[in-house]
């Protein structure tokens, strides 16, 4: 019997999460057709588990019980292990959420197996699997070989595009709750409060920063930059020219005499790229420059550039980002 790959999923409102669909795409690339198996645990798991069929998974395991609402990750991990056993799976692939990482950690420990998280690439390399993953805060990338009869992989969210598949009618098999040790049921979640997220992250530790320069010509136009920042959930920054002109407080300034930032993504809008500014952001992982001047020095250090009128580009970009993010 060829070994299967078990994708442990999560559901939102009855359908598989984006992270799970990404994990499925990754699993499929390294597994023989038909050997990708799905698993879902939760208070209403059965119907959500059926959603695996929409994404071409024919064999699906599930564990359903109201008790699973607010149970700990260790419970889910034990159930996933049981499903893996039932399915004859030797590879687990999950979306890299908190639950996903806990599951691969526990399973890898139990199986004494190779494990990797935050994976941005997964391929078969002979008998082994080869993964790539960012390390050191994204400042470097490592490639690892996962060897041995079992492996567990958590995929980095948004690193893969979920590919569509022809839907099938899945066969569903239940996993009994008594396969979880009694002691693990005891910790109980007391409640959930949905908190409103306001204000945006601070400049110093934001993973995305959108900075504006004097390209907007007047203080009243700076809101275009801030709307772009908000659409990305980013912190707002500014060039020295902007803070000197009083459009924004000095705490917004990125540069030699302002703050130094190194986020995953830095968007420089209407900023020419004089060295005084560059010094403050040049170690950002990905830099996007939007400027009407094609010869602006910023394009030498940016990864992506758009030469255009920011009064047209920014609203279009903000709208597109909102559309893609479902806002």
């Amino acid at each position: 019997m060829t070994a299967a790959t078990l994708v442990v999923g999560e559901a939102h409102d009855g359908s598989l999460s984006g992270a799970t669909r990404e994990a499925l795409t990754v699993a499929r690339a390294v597994t023989a057709p038909g050997d990708v198996v799905g698993f879902l645990a939760g208070p209403a798991a059965r119907s959500a588990a059926a959603d695996f069929g929409r994404f071409g998974v024919a064999r699906v395991y599930f564990a359903e019980d109201p008790k699973l609402d607010g149970a700990t990750h260790s419970v889910s991990a034990h159930l996933a292990a049981a499903a893996a056993e039932d399915a004859g799976a030797n590879l687990i692939v999950v979306g890299g959420t908190a639950l996903g990482r806990d599951i691969v950690a526990r399973l890898a420990t139990r199986w004494n197996a190779a494990v990797a998280t935050g994976v941005t690439s997964l391929v078969r390399a002979g008998e082994a699997l080869e993964v790539r993953r960012p390390v050191f805060g994204g400042r470097a990338t490592e490639t690892r070989r996962l060897e041995g009869p079992h492996a567990a992989v958590a995929v980095r969210p948004h690193a893969f595009a979920a590919a569509p598949e022809a839907p099938v009618a899945p066969s569903l098999s239940a996993v009994a709750l008594d396969r979880v040790p009694a002691a693990l049921w005891v910790p109980k979640r007391l409640g959930i409060e949905v908190t409103a997220r306001g204000g945006g992250p601070s400049l110093g530790d934001a993973s995305i920063v959108v900075s504006g320069g004097r390209g907007g010509r007047a203080a009243e136009n700076f809101h275009l930059v801030e709307e772009l920042a908000a659409s990305l959930g980013a912190a707002g920054g500014a060039s020295r020219a902007v803070t000197d002109a009083g459009w924004r407080p000095a705490t917004f300034q990125v540069g030699q005499t302002g703050k130094t930032v190194s986020p995953q993504l830095y968007v420089a809008v209407g900023i020419s790229g004089a060295i005084q500014h560059l010094v403050g952001m040049v170690s950002s992982r990905t830099i996007v420059a939007i400027n009407s001047d094609a010869s602006a020095p910023i394009f030498k250090v940016a990864d992506y550039g758009i030469v255009g009128d920011l009064f047209q580009i920014l609203p279009a970009l903000t709208a597109e980002i909102r559309r893609v993010r479902g806002q």
Binding site: A114, A116, K300
Partner: peptide, 22 residues
Amino acid sequence: PTGASRAAKFELPPPRTGAKMI
């Protein structure tokens, strides 16, 4: 351990060569 994860390569991002203009 019955399985092992071995480091195969460690890479730094390539130096910046200028923006990809859209």
